[in-house]
Design a binder for these strands. Structure first.
Length: 257
DNA sequence: ATGTCACATCTAATGTGA
């Protein structure tokens, strides 16, 4: 299985780019974040025409996640399924070819210490609790998406600039670490220890040209899947191309899945 | 230095969110 995750920053604004990319790269599964559209306005027909099944969890204007899969999707669940009354469309899970695929768009947090920052930390804890309820030891499962957290110094272009800043605070990194600690492996980092593999660059100030990026998009997998991980890449060419999202696709290949 | 996008709204310039 070849799986990709991509924060597209608006599926309608990115439709032509995503279609062209899908035709060229043909991943088995593509998880999308920040689709920014209600489900009945998602351009699902075009993806179905390319042979992809489509599962959606969207809303008007903001957030929104989707899973596209060449194998039929089953057991689709939307949201974290806890007691919190939360209208934000940020989590979707479905099973594709026997693999439980979960995708998340973690809140950005706006500013350190803000209400949205507090919500972000609480959301990560809710995500951890969801995984604890649903992940089974030995299962083939993965959690991918835009986590809006750079886990380590290697994942920010200048650690001194980012110390204590949004996306890199110790609180955010600890909350993400607790998610991972349910029993998941950061498979891109496992395959590329020591590599600078940014996935997001600010649209402003020529950040991409200067390679001033952050690694915010991650693929976490169970040990069963980690053992089958053969390759991982960040598709920087797409970020460099026309009408880019500010995030690049991350692609992971698993053998015998 | 601010530098950019996407989306919504009293369809044109502005606010919100990232």
């Amino acid at each position: 299985m070849r799986l990709a995750t991509w924060n597209v920053n608006g599926i309608r604004a990115r439709h032509a780019v995503v279609l062209e990319w899908l035709e060229a790269r043909r991943p088995d599964v593509l998880c999308l974040q920040e689709t920014k559209v209600e489900d009945d306005k998602f351009p699902a027909l075009a993806y179905r025409a390319l042979g992809y099944d489509v599962a959606l969890c969207g809303q008007k204007s903001y957030n929104g996640v989707a899973i596209l899969s060449r194998a039929p999707l089953c057991d689709v669940t939307r949201g974290l399924g806890d007691a919190v009354d939360d209208p934000q469309a940020r989590f979707l899970a479905a099973t594709a070819a026997g693999v439980r695929v979960m995708t998340a768009y973690v809140p950005n947090g706006e500013a350190v210490g803000s209400d949205k920052f507090v919500f972000k930390l609480a959301w990560l804890e809710r995500l951890r609790a969801h995984l604890e309820r649903h992940l089974r030891p030995g299962a083939a499962a993965l959690l991918c998406g835009d986590f809006n957290v750079a886990p380590a110094e290697l994942d920010v272009w200048e650690p001194r600039v980012f110390a204590g800043k949004l996306l890199f605070t110790l609180d955010e990194r600890a909350a993400l670490e607790r998610v991972k600690a349910v029993g998941l492996v950061d498979v891109v980092r496992a395959l590329h220890p020591g590599a600078r593999l940014y996935t997001w660059w600010d649209y402003q100030a020529g950040a991409f040209g200067r390679d001033e990026g952050l690694r915010l998009d991650h693929v976490y997998v169970t040990p069963a899947l980690a053992a089958r991980a053969a390759a991982a890449e960040v598709d920087r060419a797409t970020r460099a191309g026309k009408q880019p999202s500010d995030h690049a696709p991350v692609i992971v290949t698993f053998r015998d899945v």
